[in-house]
């Protein structure tokens, strides 16, 4: 499990993954929009948030499918040109979810896929973060996953802070109380 107070970690676990129930479950029909009774039949396919799927998987109640963002089509696109794939649209937490889901689904290629994708997209983030003008950024930013966005913003904010320093500005900051003149009646 991740960090208890990490908001991103909580949001990752909200991602929906599709699971197949291995056992019939009573009284949880709400989970399956197609269910007519309050029972989820054995073998029915349901989308559950990751945190629930994970717990049920540990109890061997469900088996987890590989999420759509790691399917063959995405893999081919990533191999063709990783930098242009719109990963944010597929899954904003592509890397983190991949790390969490790989042991559950037993798909051993996900780790390599993540590394390959990150390696090839990292260079693009590096180059654009330090040089691209702010006006160019929004279009490019829509492709990035959450982790890449953090990386991009870290680079850009430190560059912006440096530029602000170089341009100068107020070199001495006065405390607000210092500037005031004292009135005679004080």
């Amino acid at each position: 499990m991740g960090h208890y107070y990490d908001i991103d970690d909580i949001l990752i676990e909200e991602e929906l993954v599709s699971v197949v129930f291995q056992k019939a479950a009573n009284g949880v029909g709400i989970l399956d929009p197609g269910a007519e009774t309050s029972t989820v039949e054995q073998g029915s396919k349901v989308e559950l948030p990751f945190w629930l799927a994970h717990e049920l998987h540990l109890r061997q109640a469900v088996s987890v499918n590989v999420p759509a963002c790691f399917d063959q089509k995405t893999r081919k696109e990533i191999q063709a040109d990783a930098a242009c794939v719109d990963l944010r649209n597929r899954c904003a937490y592509f890397y983190e979810l991949g790390c969490k889901i790989a042991p559950l689904v037993g798909d051993k290629t996900i780790g390599a896929l993540l590394l390959y994708a990150f390696k090839s997209r990292y260079k693009d983030v590096l180059i654009k973060a330090h040089t691209a003008a702010f006006s160019l950024a929004p279009k490019f930013m829509t492709l990035l996953t959450n982790e890449e966005t953090n990386l991009y913003e870290a680079a850009q904010s430190s560059m912006a802070a440096f530029k602000r320093w170089r341009m100068g500005g107020a070199r001495f900051q006065r405390a607000a109380v210092l500037g005031k003149k004292r009135r005679p009646d004080d």
């Binding site: 890397y95 790390c99 790989a102 051993k108 290629t109 996900i110 780790g111 390599a112 993540l114 590394l115 990150f118 390696k119 990292y122 590096l126 973060a129 982790e147 953090n150 990386l151 870290a154 680079a155 904010s157 430190s158 560059m159 440096f162």
Partner: peptide, 29 residues
Amino acid sequence: NIVRPFVVRALQAFYKHDSPEMIDQSDTT
């Protein structure tokens, strides 16, 4: 100082994604 925040995050990400648990299994495939 300018590249520090970027490099730290990038190294962390590489470290995580290239960890033996995630990758070594894949050598069989």
